[in-house]
């Protein structure tokens, strides 16, 4: 019986557990408080719950038999389909059954199904290379609809698998998405083509990037630890990647870019195979491949050469330094230059 409380079951499969570890770093409020406020009752979580072995299996059995109603099923980690479709690469401990089959059966019982992290959403890092283990997401296999549950999957409210992207997820993305689901507020219109809430994917990593002034003038870093824009040389995909990472701090004050390394677009399907070394921008005739998605290339090239020509010395020098070496000048009051 779920009453007013919404029952949540969290399972892990082909992943690293890092989305749970990110979640427990949630602040203002912490995740336990956020869940409590949203009326979410954790039936079982592999890292957090007391129940082990038979006690844990009993909870899952009760959901499958309908004795416990399941409101939200969360999967962290990709679904392991291999080898040869057997799911053998991940058998659920103590059950002798492939995890993929258990997930599929539970999904038919859940009011909502949530993919936590890019692995559960799209396959993610587990599919790197030739995806020898045949990992996929719940509702997607990379960019293609399908995955474990099939392209036509919809829950009873018409929602597809709700995907919280990221490698790892930001803790707030999880608490906010699950709270909206718990409140019955999530509508199909709130999700983008990959099942990601617009609340997450409606912002680009580029927005709020502390290196924006360098970007505007194409004042580029040439090596890691330089403070210029990392798009031209160092593979940064912030202008193309979903996420409010530079508007919503990670671990107090951080983001990948504030940490000095490029965005690898970990919120996007297929990020694990960029087709080039992660920290090296591929170029054709000196022009970076992979420009902002909604900008005509000719315009970008024209604007870039114009802004490069206009780059102030301050930005040109700072871009290739590891800290600000030329400070912004203040205009003196009363001066008319």
């Amino acid at each position: 019986m779920s009453g007013n409380r919404k029952n949540l079951l969290w399972l892990q499969s082909g992943g690293c557990g890092g989305c749970t570890l990110s979640l427990i770093c949630a602040e203002s409020p912490g995740f336990l408080t956020a869940f409590e406020a949203a009326g979410i009752n954790i039936l079982w979580h592999p890292a957090l719950s007391l129940e082990t072995g038979r006690e844990a299996s009993a909870i899952i059995d009760d959901i499958l038999s309908g004795r416990i109603l399941l409101d939200i099923l969360c999967l962290e980690g990709s679904v392991m389909m291999g080898p040869n479709g057997s799911g053998r690469f991940h058998m659920m401990a103590g059950s002798g059954e492939p995890m993929k089959d258990i997930i599929a059966r539970l999904a038919t019982k859940a009011r909502h199904v949530v993919g936590v992290g890019s692995c559960a959403a799209f396959g993610g890092i587990t599919t790197t290379g030739d995806n020898a283990v045949k990992a996929c997401g719940l509702g997607f296999d990379g960019e293609l609809k399908g995955g474990l549950l099939g392209a036509g999957f919809a829950d009873e409210s018409g929602l597809p698998v709700v995907n919280i992207p990221g490698c790892p997820v930001h803790p707030d993305w999880v608490t906010q998405t699950l709270s909206q689901l718990s409140a019955g507020e999530m509508r199909p219109d709130d999700l983008d083509e990959f099942g990601r809430p617009h609340a997450i994917s409606g912002t680009l990593v580029h927005h709020g990037c502390s290196r924006n002034e360098f970007y505007e003038y194409k004042a580029s870093a040439t090596r890691l630890c330089e403070i210029g824009c990392m798009m031209e040389n160092l593979g940064c995909k912030g202008t193309q990647a979903a996420g409010d990472c530079n508007k919503r701090a990670w671990n107090g004050s951080g983001s990948c870019i504030s940490g000095g390394y490029p965005c690898i677009a970990c919120t996007e399907p297929g990020f694990e195979e960029p087709g080039h070394p992660f920290v090296q921008t591929p170029k054709i005739a000196g022009i970076p491949v992979g420009l902002p998605t909604d900008m005509p290339k000719a315009w970008f090239v024209a604007l870039s050469s114009l802004s490069k020509a206009a780059t102030p010395k301050r930005l040109r020098q700072n871009a290739v330094s590891d800290r600000v070496v030329v400070f912004p000048k203040r205009k003196k009051k009363g001066s008319h230059r």
Binding site: L21, E27, S255
Partner: peptide
């Protein structure tokens, strides 16, 4: 613990999975 992790946020961008 979460506040202690601000050390990683400041020095290395985020936790887990930094490239710093």
């Amino acid at each position: 613990r979460a506040e202690f992790m601000h050390i990683v946020g400041l020095l290395a961008g985020k936790w887990p999975h930094t490239m710093s």
